[in-house]
Design a protein around this nucleic acid. Structure first.
Lengths: 361, 361
DNA sequence: ACGCTATCCGAAACCGCTTTCGGTTGTCAA
DNA sequence: TTGACAACCGAAAGCGGTTTCGGATAGCGT
């Protein structure tokens, strides 16, 4: 493969040094704020660098310094290749924060036939990334196990079962669902069904736990057929709703593990001729913008995904920067979801005009 | 700043060469399929590299070869930091294709106070990327103008007004909206309103053109108040729908520039007590999964965004690989959107039970 | 046995930047 | 004046690969 010859115009530190009549070393130190370069020289170098449009080659700089200011992010492989909007916003926040810190974000997907850990391993071994962010954690997550042994800084968005020895930022899912149940109970509901997600996923498991704990604490019993796990898309939500509607003793409210599931449920209910918001209350989780656009508006537990992304970025960079200092503490941050009230949850059997409490505020 | 000393365990080509009793050059050529290394040697080197877990440092390799197998993608800055789902899927496809070609994807955001071109320029000048993908093109797009002069390979997802001299992949938006209008006319509609997006955006402009051309061709006149531009979110859609409903002569169908707008419109119509799918037909564009989950299901012009992302990735890599060959042609690919029929569009004034044609198939 | 090609591999020069180390200056006190 | 000490800067050795160039070895015909 022929070497790609740089065109002569490319501004290198060598050219810049020659232009200034200085050595490369001096120029380098001048530009990197070394204390042993005269003020005047620094100014002169800065000026010339600016005028000639010099930008140090990150590649060469990396090689020389042995640090890679890039963090990796592997898109979770999903059926149908749909990135959920929550992830997209996290990514946006992450990218923004990293750009502000002059770090790069390397995004990779997992091609069929490979697995996530393999992809991550390659990225690390080939020196492409110096840190990692993982999202959508499972209760037992091989990615975390791997990163633990890899000695590079990383932050998880979401915890695992065993999460003492690494950095994470998570929403208090359990508390959020306790709050949601309590809210429904406060409205007068006692028969509350639950559409849960993949129990392998930590957030789904925790929300489930919150549902179980709060219903128990409030003395709501969970009739057979009220709980459905493994609901990960609208179709599954629809089927689960149909089953629930077949039950002799209907619930009056359905708590859903995500907004997507909730929206699927709302559709299925409407489809069955049930008036959502009066005959049946529905609550979701995420705070997607879409929840505001549907009818009725979705009452949901909101999490600030963009902010989560930014904070995760902040943490991982901070951790990388102090990687030398020994026995550094891990940031472990728990944020709370907040209830966003719209039209889809109301006191049971109250035949109000759902339209009057539509989603657009 | 202290140099980060590599731990001794790091497997470098030097160590590998010493271990094999070969020179670094030989090892390098063996691993890179040079023809002048004996078969047996190649096998021996391969085996050892495998066993010792050697992975060449991409940084060093880049420096030596002068090529950067990374393509950049800058997230368009939007109000409210919401990546639209269409972009997210493109990104997914792009990441997948690049991973398969052993290229990297560098994603950056645009921090407040900076602009996109500036961000792209830094990425290029500092040698972080060797190619670019831009999405969501404007009719006159400064990013394209910039990339034209930058001499690095790039592909646009979407065209600009002036698009002869660069590579792009686009959906035939104009034809799609002609088709959509024709479909509505075929159903019996004559009074068709239009909710258009930001006319600066090329796709919005083209869809608008398709609407105008087809209505004219079919002799549908566009009553005053039928056309609304600049509708970019659900709220704007709602307001536009309210205006439309105030018109003395209602349209019977509304064509929407995107699914998001269509969903907003559907909500607003439902809110106003209008039965979508019978009293008013709605058609969107994108084919978002959400369109299947709402009620009634959204009839829409679908584009295969994941596939678009993959194809764009394929093109940009191909272009980078043949960058040496002179006067290479530019791939310019036009795909067609396909009509996905669900419940939101039907013959006018036909009072069918919309539920029976719900969105879940 | 001898020269002549192929075949295969080693030596060494990069790629562009960082960082250590030491050598010049200039300044100031003795 | 001289010696000591800062303050500055240059020289050179990397970082971990790739690639050119030429030398050694082996196989071959005569």
């Amino acid at each position: 493969m022929p070497r790609v010859r740089k065109q002569n115009e490319t501004m290198s530190i060598a050219r810049l040094a020659k232009h200034l009549g200085l050595s490369e070393g001096t120029v380098s130190r001048a530009l990197n704020n070394y204390p042993d370069i005269a003020e005047k020289t620094v100014a002169r170098v800065r000026k010339a660098a600016d005028e000639l449009g010099y930008r140090p080659s990150t590649t060469a700089r990396r090689l020389a310094r042995g640090v890679v200011e890039t963090i990796g992010f592997v898109l979770p492989a999903r059926d149908g290749h749909q990135i959920d909007p929550f992830l997209a916003e996290i990514l946006d926040g992450l990218a923004t924060e990293l750009a502000l810190s002059d770090w790069d974000l390397l995004v990779s997907a997992v091609p069929d036939g490979h697995d996530e850990v393999e992809v991550m391993d390659r990225l690390i071994q080939s020196g492409k990334v110096g840190g990692f962010v993982v999202a959508r954690t499972k209760r037992h997550d091989p990615r975390i196990d791997f990163l633990r042994t890899s000695h590079i800084p990383f932050v998880a968005q979401g915890r695992t079962e065993n999460c003492d020895d690494y950095a994470w930022l998570d929403i208090d899912n359990e508390k959020a669902f306790v709050d949601a149940v309590n809210y429904l109970v406060g409205l007068g509901h006692r028969k509350i069904a639950y559409l849960g997600g993949d129990p392998e996923l930590n957030y789904a498991w925790q929300r489930r736990a919150g549902y179980l704990a709060a219903t128990k604490a409030k003395g709501c019993d969970i009739a057979p057929g009220y709980m459905h796990d493994g609901i990960t898309n609208e179709l599954a939500a629809r089927e689960a709703v149909l089953e629930i509607l077949k039950l002799p003793d209907h619930p009056t409210a359905i708590l859903c593990v995500t907004d997507a599931v909730a929206i699927g449920a709302i559709h299925a209910l409407a489809h069955a001729g049930i008036d959502v918001g009066s005959e049946m209350s529905v609550i979701g989780f995420d705070g997607l913008p879409m929840g505001e656009a549907i009818h009725p508006g979705l009452t949901t537990m909101s999490q600030a995904s963009y902010k989560i992304g930014r904070e995760v970025g902040r943490i991982v960079v901070a951790q990388a920067n102090k990687a030398n200092s020994p026995a550094s503490e891990f940031s472990q941050i728990l944020w709370e979801a907040s209830l966003t009230v719209r039209g889809s949850a109301n006191p049971p059997a109250l035949k109000l005009a759902a339209n009057a409490k539509g989603g657009i505020s």
